[in-house]
Design a protein around this nucleic acid. Structure first.
Ligand SMILES: [Mn+2]
Ligand SMILES: [Mn+2]
Ligand SMILES: [Zn+2]
Ligand SMILES: [Zn+2]
Lengths: 126, 126
DNA sequence: AAATTATTGCAAATGATTTGCAATATTGCA
DNA sequence: TGCAATATTGCAAATCATTTGCAATAATTT
């Protein structure tokens, strides 16, 4: 009987806008800072869970002990290059189908997804 | 004047043996469980830091919100394939030099390292 | 064996993320 | 438009992984 509905609320609007505006992998805290604490950190997390479940957001790991989130948006599937000096992040696209196929063949696994991030020095920092 | 010395102690012996025996990416807690709490969790962490600094151990991220550690040992540089159903982990080796070179050329970054992990279903689970 | 000082265990701190719950806001419908 | 139904929020507290301070203890040196 009861209809389930996902409501369009202020926190959701704001978190989405923040992700859109920042347009790079950001932490929950960075979203909160950007929003100047207009909403509670808890709501940031809850909205992120929602966006992840509905496949609008990707979780990205740089190994800092926290998660980063990025809007899937228009961009194609891609990875990142992080400058270890200045922290700058650059998107990296590449053709990986043959690599994936090769791994599947050798392992007999069916691959569902993968994480790939690069770390190094950007042109300015090297 | 004072010599600095790194001591060969029971916790260090045990953590190393645990990593050797488990021989796959394990969490600090799993090491501690394997050692049946013979040493404190803090010492596990401290020994791991030491082993990482001396490049004997690699940190691996599966995105569970915690780090995993694996002995570098004899094995070459490699990545992993994780079964999302049974949790089984398989090593994956591949030639990635051309891929790395391509990313460096396109981005102008100098790449120092990268993380790459695959997730899917193992032969038994699919 | 004693002195030196690195290392340990334990408790407490920290940081990220999650959860419980009562107060509040959205929505569908009268 | 007005309200009831219920999804969502904020706030506090809980949880989990990891780190830190410090006095007690163990490994090395002399
Ligand atoms: Mn990106
Ligand atoms: Mn491995
Ligand atoms: Zn840089
Ligand atoms: Zn499996």
């Amino acid at each position: 009987m009861t209809k389930i509905g996902i409501r369009y609320t202020k926190p959701r609007k704001l978190v989405f806008e923040a992700l859109e505006h920042l347009s790079k992998p950001v932490s929950a805290n960075e979203i909160n800072d950007y929003l100047k604490n207009k909403i509670d950190l808890t709501s940031v997390y809850r909205t992120l869970s929602l966006l992840i479940k509905s496949e609008m957001v990707n979780v990205i790991l740089f190994g800092e002990g926290k998660k980063r989130y990025e809007l899937k948006n228009k961009n194609e599937h891609h990875h990142h290059l992080v400058c270890e000096k200045c922290g700058d992040v650059k998107d990296v696209e590449m053709k990986e189908s043959s690599l994936l196929k090769s791994v599947e063949e050798r392992s007999k696994f069916v691959i569902k997804k993968h994480n790939l991030e690069f770390f190094g020095l950007c042109p300015d920092c090297q």
